[in-house]
Design a protein around this nucleic acid. Structure first.
Lengths: 145, 145
DNA sequence: CGATATTATCATAAAGATGTCGTGAATATA
DNA sequence: TATATTCACGACATCTTTATGATAATATCG
C-alpha cells in the first residue's frame, strides 16, 4: 500500500516526534533506531527538510528535529512526498475518462474505497500516533518512545 | 494502489469477460484494445492461464478466453497474482510485532482501512464489473463492451 | 505434408526504486 | 584558527518492474 521509502519516512518522523523537548537526533542514530540504511535515510530526511517538515542542524550536537507541531502534521503530508496517495487517481479499469457523470462499472465502489484510504491519511496526524504508543523491541536504541 | 501489471491484468480480464459467448481474442487485439504493450501483455495473459483464470488456444482462430464464470471470479484472484493486497500486511510504523493484543498507536485505524480495501477486492467479482458498463473512447478497437 | 497463424518461452534491455560511497560545506568547541 | 562532528549532495551500484525481440511449439487449413 505504501512504498518502502514512504514507510521509512513515516517511521523516522514518528520517532523524532517522540524525542523529549524535540531534541535533535543524528541521522545515524535515527537509522539504527528505525532499522533503515543510514545513507538512504539521509536522503529521505533531506527531502523532509526541504518540505519544511523537519529542521536540520549541522556540526556537533546537530541532527534532525520536527519543524512543526505533531498535531498539525498529517500522515498525508509525509507520505505524499514519496507516493501518490489520493491525487491523480486513475480509473481502476484504465478508462481515459472516468468520473461521477461518466463512471465505469466499479467507479462508485472503488471511489468509496479509495476515499476511505485517503481520509485515513489526511485525518490522522503524527500527534494521534504519538498518544499512548509503546515501541517494539528493536526500536529502543534511541529512547524514542 | 495497484501495480501497473495488476491493472493491466484486470483490464484484460474484464475485456475478455465482455466478449459475446466468450469467443477467443488474440493477444495482439487485446493489447490494442486495452492499451498495453503487446509482448508484455502476453506474459501477463500467460500468468493468468497458469492460474486457471484464462484458457488459451494456439493456431488459427486461437486466443484467450475466460476459463471461469465472471460471477465466480473475484478481483482479488486476479490482482493477487501480481500484487500483495491483504496478506502479509505490515505494520504501518514498521514494528516487528504489531497485533490486536499488542497494537501500535495506529493499528486499529489502519487495520480498519486496510480491511476495507481488501473487502473491496474479495467481494467484487468480474461479473459485478460487467453489469451496465460502457467503455471509453480508446477501447473500442475490439468490440469488448 | 506444407504454409500460416497464434501462443509459449527465453534472453535481454530500459526504467525506476533502493541502497552505497565519497567529498564538500556548515557548525561547535577548544 | 584548527579540529572534530554532522548534514548536503552528487556519483555510482544493485535489484525489481516494466518492456522488447527472437525463436520454439502447437493448431488450423489447403
Amino acid at each position: 500500500m505504501l512504498s518502502g521509502t514512504a514507510e521509512y519516512a513515516l517511521r523516522a518522523v514518528v520517532c523524532l516526534s517522540r524525542q523529549p523537548n524535540h531534541a535533535p537526533v543524528r541521522a545515524s542514530d535515527l537509522a539504527a533506531s528505525v532499522s533503515v540504511p543510514r545513507n538512504y535515510l539521509g536522503k529521505i530526511l533531506h527531502d523532509l527538510v526541504r518540505a519544511g517538515i523537519l529542521k536540520s542542524t549541522r556540526g556537533k550536537n546537530g541532527g534532525f528535529q520536527l519543524a512543526v507541531e505533531p498535531g498539525d502534521l498529517s500522515l498525508l503530508q509525509i507520505v505524499t512526498l514519496f507516493d501518490q496517495i489520493g491525487e491523480r487517481r486513475r480509473c481502476l479499469l484504465g478508462r481515459p475518462e472516468c468520473s461521477e457523470s461518466d463512471p465505469c462499472p466499479v467507479h462508485h465502489r472503488w471511489k468509496e474505497c479509495a476515499d476511505h484510504v485517503q481520509r485515513f491519511f489526511t485525518d490522522t496526524t503524527v500527534g494521534d500516533v504519538l498518544d499512548g504508543g509503546s515501541l517494539g523491541p528493536g526500536e529502543t536504541s534511541i529512547p524514542c518512545g
